[in-house]
Design a protein around this nucleic acid. Structure first.
Lengths: 221, 221
DNA sequence: AAAGGATTTTGACTTAAATCAAGGTCTTCT
DNA sequence: AGAAGACCTTGATTTAAGTCAAAATCCTTT
């Protein structure tokens, strides 16, 4: 679950946790609710989002197995979270958690690192949302997906073609990138016309030249 | 400097720190540089931003006296920082900092809370950038400024008119809100036409009805 | 295999914000 | 005080992305 911890810590933690299963499609954290819990996802994918009263929404991110949820501490949940499939998680009450933190400072250290990393990612996403064009946003997304593949551990982009799964619907992608479904689709189409990507079906892209795609994604004209 | 610390901690910290003065306009953290330091601002305002190679940029935030900078830990700085005026700060080398963390866990706890709070703010800003219209963005900014005034500590909006200083140029505001200077100006003009705000000069707004402004800012139609 | 529904793509048109271009206003400096 | 420059506002036009609508593809279920 939390690789920076010793076995002792893990044992203590798992005793403090409460295991739960969430049905696909259920919103199990609701923005504005009192923030009483902290979660670790042990299986499945979760959509984290914020919405405006009129229905417009932004997906902050997608979280999967091993990731932590509910860090935002301020009495109120700052976002909603929805299970994209059946999800298993460990739940900690906030009071328990503070106890565990005191007993095992390594966990706190780890969470600080995670938070710092999430902040970096958030800043990158803000630049994307504030200043990138639709094609640049979609290209950036594709590159980020490549980067999290095992193959390119050290931040090295492959210079051969590479095929990716797109497990996420166009609607989710649009809400994640601050676009509409149609614009996402058209951006893919444009990248394809320009020979940068190819589709075997709507959920499997081949990046024909990841390095060229990076030039587009980051406006390294 | 860091109100969650005991006097002992403070003494230890200040010994580990290196005091510096940065001239107005100087970029003292450069995105991509090795991240060797951690900063605490003791005086003055700083602009934190990320830029694309072609010059487009996004201001992630403005940081002032008492705030921490450089949390993002990953070898590389994830953003640039520029002094908006003469700035005084305390600088800690990363190795020193790790030592201090081990000695004074309270500081680490505090930083985790700060990071969690910054994440919340970042998510809110992403929703703004991804989904809000220009007028909504400008309204949101004005409201956020009101909220950080002493008067509304408990998250309560005043229901009387209230005057704000806008210490930031339209250009900075545009880069912060993901708009252009002209659109910021026009959004202000529209809010003024609709009787929601008034200007005594370009850097002093009066919010005629903060509650109505909030309806606009958060699309509570 | 056909029907039905959801998802994705494509097309025509609209619109909000960007861009280009003047004018104003404010500040600073001689 | 007057000139020069920075900053802000307003106007005209363009454009990228949004909206509305229909077709195409995929997936599930009977």
């Amino acid at each position: 679950m939390c690789d920076a911890l010793s076995d002792d810590d893990l044992t203590a933690l798992s005793q403090a946790a409460q295991r739960m299963t969430i049905a696909a499609g259920r919103v199990f954290i609701e923005e504005g609710d009192p923030a009483n819990y902290f979660y670790n996802i042990t299986q499945g994918m979760v959509r984290v989002f914020k919405a405006l009263p009129d229905g417009r929404r932004h997906i902050t991110g997608f979280m999967g197995t091993g990731q932590f949820l509910g860090l935002a501490i301020s009495g109120q949940c700052a976002f909603s979270a929805e299970a994209m499939e059946e999800v298993h998680l460990c739940r900690f009450s906030r009071s328990t958690l503070n106890q565990v933190f005191s007993d095992f400072p390594a966990l706190e250290r780890r969470l600080l690192n995670i938070a710092a990393h999430e902040l970096t990612v958030a800043h990158e996403q803000m630049l994307l949302l504030a200043r990138k064009s639709a094609v640049e946003r979609v290209s950036s997304y594709l590159l980020n997906q490549v980067m999290r593949l095992d193959a390119c551990a050290a931040g090295k982009l492959p210079n051969t073609m590479i095929t990716l799964k797109l497990p996420i619907s166009r609607a989710d992608l649009a809400d994640y990138l601050g676009l509409t479904i149609e614009t996402v689709s058209r951006s893919f189409a444009q990248l394809k016309r320009n020979g940068l990507i190819d589709f075997s079906n709507a959920h499997a892209v081949t990046l024909m030249n990841p390095q060229k795609l990076e030039v587009i994604a980051n406006a390294k004209g």
